[in-house]
């Protein structure tokens, strides 16, 4: 059995860990609130964007645009925007995203996949396995701006426009609540939004005046649509990351607490046993002197 001294050392360790996890939990909670606000603030724009797309797609048929380029058969080379965290200790957050990514790229092999990564964890994982990571970006600590997302999305769009990839996917984590986050795989390019947007809003449309014309508007709208989707994925992922970290750190704090109380009990027992033993010895010694 461990000596009281060893047990005390372990209690101290557990207490230190508990303090750290508690602090991390609090930091994550504060960041989560801000990230959630960003998700909420981005929603009206995204919704409006979809509405505009819907009205436009009814007014313009057969638009030619590089982002609408379809390829024959199955895509052979794909691009992937992979959104993970820079750091671990966020529960299953990183691993579930990476697991999704591994499934997605398996049929293509390392030489046919180009990765644009946000967050160190995903980049490190795929680089070690010989994938080409064309662009590495940190997760912005102060909250991502639309400009950051645009830069990111532009890199990926260019790969597609230049024919380096046939399809572009994004893997991110959908923010359901602070407790629940769902990894999602979404195909962004070639754009399929046009058809679905048109389906989503049936019925008579307002008779718009288009200036200059629907095609022109659409062609400047499409890249922005992609940017918006990327932006949305990133902010949802950031919110999810903080949510996952908060939940897992909260669990870690609880576990440390349980461990401390267990160890304290063992310590008290050991102390009691030592005292009992000493008394027995004294009594035994006194008895022998009689």
């Amino acid at each position: 059995m461990a000596t009281p001294r060893q047990i005390r050392a372990r209690i101290r360790t557990a207490k230190n860990i508990q303090q750290i996890t508690k602090a991390m939990k609090m930091v994550a909670a504060a960041r989560l609130r801000r990230a959630q606000e960003a998700v909420g603030a981005a929603r009206p724009y995204a919704e409006k964007m979809r509405e505009v797309m819907a009205s436009l797609s009814s007014g313009s048929d057969g638009v030619q645009h590089p982002l609408l380029r379809k390829i024959e058969g199955e895509p052979k080379k794909i691009g992937l925007i992979l959104i993970t965290a820079d750091r671990g200790l966020a529960g299953a957050y990183n691993s579930s995203v990476i697991k999704r990514a591994v499934e997605l790229v398996r049929p293509y092999g390392p030489e046919h996949v180009k990765i644009v990564s946000v967050g160190k964890k995903g980049a490190v994982f795929f680089k070690r396995r010989g994938f080409s990571v064309v662009s590495e970006n940190p997760v912005p600590q102060t909250g991502i701006s639309f400009l950051d997302a645009q830069t990111l999305s532009r890199t990926a769009r260019r790969l597609f426009e230049d024919g380096e990839i046939d399809a572009l996917y994004v893997i991110y984590t959908q923010f359901v609540s602070a407790m629940t986050q769902r990894p999602q795989t979404v195909q962004i390019l070639p754009l399929q939004a046009l058809e679905s947007a048109a389906d989503a809003k049936p019925g008579p449309k307002a008779d718009y005046i288009f200036e200059p014309n629907p095609e022109q508007i659409l062609s400047s709208l499409l890249p922005r649509y992609v940017d918006t989707q990327v932006f949305q994925s990133v902010i949802e992922s950031v919110a999810s990351e903080h949510g996952a970290r908060m939940t897992s750190m909260s669990a870690a704090t609880d576990n440390a607490g349980k461990m401390i109380s267990g160890l304290t009990l063992t310590l008290n027992r050991a102390r009691q046993a030592a005292i009992t033993k000493e008394i027995a010895e004294i009594v035994g010694g006194a008895e022998a002197l009689k």
Binding site: L56, Y208, F210, E211, P212, I217
Partner: peptide
């Protein structure tokens, strides 16, 4: 600042979509 010049919108303007 519309695509084809400055645009003024008052109430009751015809439906319009512009860059």
């Amino acid at each position: 600042p519309g695509y084809e010049g400055q645009l003024g919108i008052l109430a009751g303007h015809a439906p319009l979509m512009t860059e």
